[in-house]
Amino acid sequence: MSEHKLNLKLMIWKQSGPDVKGKFQEYKVSVSPDSSFLEILDDLNDSLERSNKEPVTFESDCREGICGTCGLVINGLPHGPLSRIATCQLHMRHFKDGDTVYVEPFRANTFPVIKDLMVDRSALDRIMHAGGFISINTGGVPDANEIPIPKEISSFAFDAAACIGCGACVAACKNSSAMLFVSAKVSQFALLPQGQPERYQRVEKMIKVMDEEGFGACSNTYACEAECPKGISVKNIARLNREYIKAKVKSHNLD
């Protein structure tokens, strides 16, 4: 535990609505190095509220890096300068006294700003509605041990399924592409026997919606993997491409 305080200049993006022009607003804060980044925003808001000024709107929920609600671009990097963590897991001891810290929202046309640092990521949900599932109803399923799944395959599927849907991949990609997000779900189900019946139509449907939503294409820069708080591998994107090619060759879908 540290006793000293860090004095920081925060440059925070303020934007009152989706169609309004935003700009950086400067805030000076003095913070404990043990605080998390979001806690200093809490503190800042508390002091703004106390002086009856409008607080900074930002989102967060679990603060354990698993719900995917938080997501800030800090000094140009989604979820901040450290790798493999979400914004809520970033602590102030990684900053130096006197630093200027720029805080921006995730930016992409598919993620319109709602207010300040809060963006609308519902486009990701709409991709999931198109095919991010296995079409079974509740009940009437076989015993869980009916189908053995090799430990390794199950583990690969888990690696892909660990995606928290925060959208940092889109935010990090120079093309605002959602390929890492989509590939994680497609991979999880393509690897598992349960996903086989809908394997090809799933990838076709999800890519179709992904394109309709206006996400960019993948340029294989791999920035998504580097910024992903769960380290989802771009190997999943390769698998997604493979699945898509196979689907287009094999499926009977003329769309």
Partner: peptide
Amino acid sequence: NRSARSEKYKI
């Protein structure tokens, strides 16, 4: 790809 992000990052 470029037009998928109309408002660019400042940093």
